[in-house]
């Protein structure tokens, strides 16, 4: 059971993120929703990095044994970097939206419809 906690956390984070995207009205909170999904996915990747009876892939002063392949860590780093770019872009767009619409309510930011 204790080993499943990360997976439960992943599911909780992703569902919370989707909840925030669908039910929150403030644009900033929607951006937070995206970050929540992102951290959920990153946590999932990191969790997958461990394989049973393996040790961390650090060569100096290694106790010996099978090392886990450090691919997920590399993926997570890339994903975090991309995430920062996306969040920065989103927040700057939110800023511009506030300038044009004078509100951050997602129900009012809909000049484009039909």
């Amino acid at each position: 059971m204790i080993f499943n906690i990360p997976y439960i956390a992943v599911a909780a984070l992703i569902l919370l993120g989707l909840y925030a995207l669908i039910f929150k009205r403030n644009l900033i909170k929607m951006v937070i929703g995206i970050t929540l999904i992102e951290s959920g996915v990153n946590l999932f990747l990191i969790t997958l990095g461990y394989r049973k009876e393996s040790i961390a892939p650090i060569y100096t002063s290694s106790p010996g044994g099978v090392m886990a392949f450090p691919v997920p860590q590399a993926l997570t780093l890339t994903s975090i970097v991309i995430g920062v770019a996306v969040i920065a872009l989103m927040l700057s767009l939110v800023m511009h939206i506030y300038r044009h619409y004078g509100t951050l309510d997602v129900r009012k930011v809909r000049r484009l419809k039909e």
């Binding site: 995207l21 669908i22 039910f23 997602v106 930011v109 809909r110 419809k113």
Partner: peptide
Amino acid sequence: LRKMHTGNTSDYVLWFV
């Protein structure tokens, strides 16, 4: 159809789900 196309970003996500 006009009712469906609300233009609300949350609804776009809802359709995906």
